[in-house]
Amino acid sequence: MTSQTLITPDPALDSAMRPRGIPSTLGRVLREPRVWLGLIGILTLIVTAAFAPWLAPHGPNDQDLLHTLLPPMWAEGGTSDYPLGTDSLGQCILSRLIYSAQVVALVGLLAPLGAALVGVPMAILSGYIGGRVDWLIMRAVDIWMSFPAVVLALVLMVALSPGLTNVILAIIVVDWTRFCRVLRSEVMVLRRRNYIAAAQLTGATHLQVILRDIAPGLMPQLLTLLSIEMGVSIIAEAILSFVGVSMEPSIPTWGMMIADGLKSVFSAPWGLIAPVICMTVTVLACTLLGDGLRQTLDPRLLERVRG
């Protein structure tokens, strides 16, 4: 009763007048064509990988030694049995491409998640606690990053022996520093905001502050980093399999196909061109998704657009 007479509610605060035409975050993200293109590319990859046995006309290692180095079906001498032709062992290039998607999809999805799992806690520790912990973690990252990434991964693979788990592990070990570096600076920015001090004044524990007030602020950058890291880890895996230290020889990958195609590039260029196109399109999709997410989620870019 007293409060009603003392404090006049603001009549302009009706729900009708509230939002000033700011679309929701999800709406903004989905309206961005780059996000769409990226998502379509990545979904295509996943579907291809999941349904490889049904989609591929041949097994990945089926050899037809009578028909080696066939050109694609639309070229002279090609047959519709082998739509993209065959390689030097008479293996169907299209089927190998489709089966390769399995490794690519697994590496592309799991390696970034793993790298984030290591990098994000380190970033939060480093940025939130600061001081000596920060110094220690950042010097470790500096030393880590001063190794050439490819060499480090190669050494690791030689030590670990080929296999899917080890490839993913090697990529995580090399690339967690990216997450740590980028997100640490973001944590430091958030840490200095007054709302963190305000949360501490309400008696929240450090863990509560991190979970409720810091982690949500990291999401836009984390999503962007994850999608960029997808492309990076797909390339890293291709490099490793190009030099033959990634998977067992029985499992096809695009990197391995590029290495094989290179040997007969003058007689049958499609053995090289096809996997290169696949790689390029996939990595481009990841980059587009990352770029689109960054544009639509980064509040700093948003302010500028809104003017």
């Binding site: 404090i7 006049t8 509610p9 603001d10 605060l13 009706d14 729900s15 509230r18 700011i22």
Partner: peptide, 17 residues
């Protein structure tokens, strides 16, 4: 009510205010 905000503001975010 104490600070004179309409109750339906409770579900909005600070940048909208």
């Amino acid at each position: 009510r104490d600070v004179g905000l309409a109750v339906d503001m409770l579900d909005s975010y600070p940048p909208q205010m």
